[in-house]
């Protein structure tokens, strides 16, 4: 998802836990929220920083592929909607960085780790948006996949993270709809538009399935994160739910899911579908995706070009405070 393959630290059996660790796990099992000043195992804190940080980075890097079309949006209304939506992503990044900051790491530290390649962001944002239909597909599929993950995270064990997710889910509710609305217009439009819509689905289908991460049913990291309730569902559960929800939506559009093996499985009450190419996924994670270099360049440029602005405004505020104190 936005936080893919987060390595979890800890993973102790109950009889290896200290009394404090046992008490902590009991609180989580009772459904209590953990708050910033509460005692927590170091592994819980570090894993959360990694997960929330990666989630925040994904929101901010995620501005770029959609931002790519703000200046080319085809109508004044579409332009405003897209701008508002990409602005929301910045806001969501901000809420998540704030949640991470309650764990004793600053936003600048997290940003520097991202820019140094020491922290990751979701693989999906390394794919290009080539046509206007891609903006529809990103809203429909990428936000649709993100929502699958974010709705359960409103119940995650860490209070500030859960509260950020509540706010994000509330604001996200229009994002997927705006994407689908673009897809509907395109699918019902001219032959060119319909072709663009199908092409966008073809290119974004498998990368969207990758967003959930590889199967983690045997992953110890996932097991620990689920015990801590910072991960609520397995990757496969969410992927299945996403496919089951999306296939009828594609049919309504008159578009075809690019998977010849997609078939309804009556027994499991869901679709059987083809797995994405996981070797591609690992290459993208390693930095070799179609847009990894461009995305990082854009973030580094914003950070470096913005340094004088951040320093200038801070210097002015300090001058003012000093003058005020001297009065």
């Amino acid at each position: 998802m936005y936080a893919q393959m987060v390595t979890s630290e800890g993973g102790k059996a109950r009889d290896e836990m200290t009394p404090e660790e046992c008490a902590f796990q009991d609180r989580i099992d009772r459904g209590e929220r953990i708050e910033p000043k509460d005692w927590m195992p170091e592994g819980y804190r570090k894993t959360l920083i990694r997960q929330i940080g990666q989630h925040a980075h994904s929101e901010v890097v995620g501005q770029l592929p959609e931002g790519n079309w703000i200046t080319r949006a085809p109508t004044l209304e579409r332009k405003q909607i897209l701008l508002a939506k990409v602005q929301d992503e910045a806001g969501h990044g901000l809420y998540l960085y704030s949640a991470a900051e309650t764990l004793g790491v600053s936003r600048d530290e997290l940003t520097e780790m991202l820019l140094a390649g020491k922290m990751k962001y979701s693989s999906i944002f390394n794919y290009p948006t080539l046509t206007w239909a891609d903006i529809g597909a990103v809203g429909w599929l990428v936000d649709g996949a993100a929502i699958m993950n974010q709705v359960p995270l409103q119940r995650t064990s860490y209070g500030p993270y859960a509260r950020a997710m509540v706010r994000i889910c509330k604001e996200e509710s229009f994002h997927q709809r705006q994407g689908y609305s673009i897809m509907m217009t395109m699918a019902r439009g001219t032959a060119d538009q319909k072709a663009m819509a199908q092409d966008a689905l073809n290119r974004f289908w498998y990368p969207s399935l990758m967003m959930f991460g590889p199967s983690d049913k045997d992953s110890v990291h996932s097991a620990q994160s689920m015990a801590w309730k910072i991960k609520i569902n397995t990757n496969d559960e969410l992927r299945q739910k996403f496919v089951d929800q999306t296939v009828p939506q594609a049919r309504f559009l008159g578009l075809e899911i690019p998977d010849p093996d997609l078939v309804w499985n009556e027994e499991k009450g869901g679709y059987d579908f083809s797995q994405p190419d996981w070797s591609e996924f690992y290459e993208v994670l390693k930095g070799n995706g179609p847009c990894n270099a461009e995305r990082m360049e854009a973030r580094i440029e914003a950070w470096e070009d913005g340094a004088w602005v951040r320093e200038g405004l801070m210097a002015h505020a300090e001058k003012r405070a000093a003058a005020h104190a001297a009065e």
Binding site: V60, L64, L94
Partner: peptide, 21 residues
């Protein structure tokens, strides 16, 4: 609007987008 995603801070990114909107 060309600044969206490229401003010096997140707060400024959001504020500039509001002006553009």
């Amino acid at each position: 609007s060309e600044w969206c995603g490229h401003a010096p801070t997140l707060e400024e990114d959001i504020a500039q987008a509001n002006v553009a909107l």
